[in-house]
Amino acid sequence: MSRDWTLAVQETVGANRYVPLPPAVREAVAFEHPLDGESVHWNYERHSDYVVLSRRPLEAPEYVDVGRYKVYDGGENRQRRVRPPERLDDVVRSNFEPESRVVYLAYAEMVDAENPSVYLLSTAQLLALLPDEASRPTAGEDGGAMTEALLRMPGFLPPP
């Protein structure tokens, strides 16, 4: 089981809560729907409110499938983007206010799974996961302690 972080991309939420969808994330989780074109599934973890984008709904009981939603063209640079669905819980949607920062985060096992998935976390959610000052890696360390700390957090488990 690989726990190497293969994807960590920060983006800024745009007007109307549109979130840029980087090419690496698109490649991992987007799929072509016969009627709506490029789409992703929105899910969130029941206890932590972490959003997970995936190709198909996550089926484990700890995840809520919000549904399949279109990937949009747009913006001045025509970058692809997604928008948190109205059906998403209000607490979860509050992480996607315009001008706020979000982070796409995935490790190899998530991206390489039968149903690829990627976390989409607010900066506040990510910072809350980081270990305290005493357990952070120092200069020259590989960051393994931080990875282990993230993976031990309740709710920050690999999606099925």
Rank of each mutant, 00 (worst) to 15 (best):
H33K: 08
R80E: 08
V102I: 13
S94T: 07
D73K: 12
A108R: 13
R26M: 13
Y107L: 07
E133L: 13
T138E: 09
L127P: 00
V71R: 03
L120Y: 01
L35K: 15
A30T: 05
V9Q: 10
P57E: 02
D73N: 14
V102T: 15
R80F: 14
G140R: 11
P61S: 14
T147M: 05
R80N: 06
M153T: 11
Y50H: 10
N95C: 13
V52C: 14
V19P: 02
S100H: 12
L7W: 02
V82M: 05
V40A: 09
L129I: 03
R93D: 08
R93A: 10
V13K: 05
G143I: 01
Y50Q: 04
Y72H: 14
S54N: 06
R87N: 13
V51C: 14
Y107E: 15
F156L: 13
E86S: 14
P84D: 03
N77Y: 15
R81W: 05
D112A: 14
V64E: 12
S2R: 07
L21Q: 08
G14Y: 01
V118K: 08
V92P: 11
P98M: 05
L88N: 04
E45H: 15
G155Q: 00
L130T: 03
R78M: 09
S135N: 11
F156G: 06
R26I: 01
V71A: 03
R56M: 09
H33V: 03
A139L: 12
G155Y: 00
D90M: 02
R56P: 01
A28Y: 00
H47Y: 11
P34T: 09
R78E: 12
G37C: 13
E99A: 11
D73H: 12
A15S: 10
D142T: 13
Q10G: 10
R87K: 13
P158D: 03
G143K: 04
V52G: 00
A128D: 15
E97Y: 02
E38W: 07
L157Q: 04
V91N: 05
Q125A: 06
M110A: 02
D65T: 04
N95I: 01
D90F: 00
L21C: 10
D142R: 14
V19G: 06
G67A: 06
M146T: 15
L127N: 09
D4C: 08
L130Y: 06
T6V: 11
H41R: 07
A28E: 01
G67R: 03
Y72S: 09
L151W: 11
T12L: 09
S39R: 05
V102E: 08
R68L: 08
E32L: 11
R93G: 01
L150I: 02
A113H: 10
V92K: 08
L53P: 03
Y104A: 13
S117R: 00
P160N: 15
M146Y: 01
P61G: 09
R152F: 03
S135H: 15
T138R: 14
P84W: 04
V66F: 05
E38T: 10
L127K: 07
E11T: 04
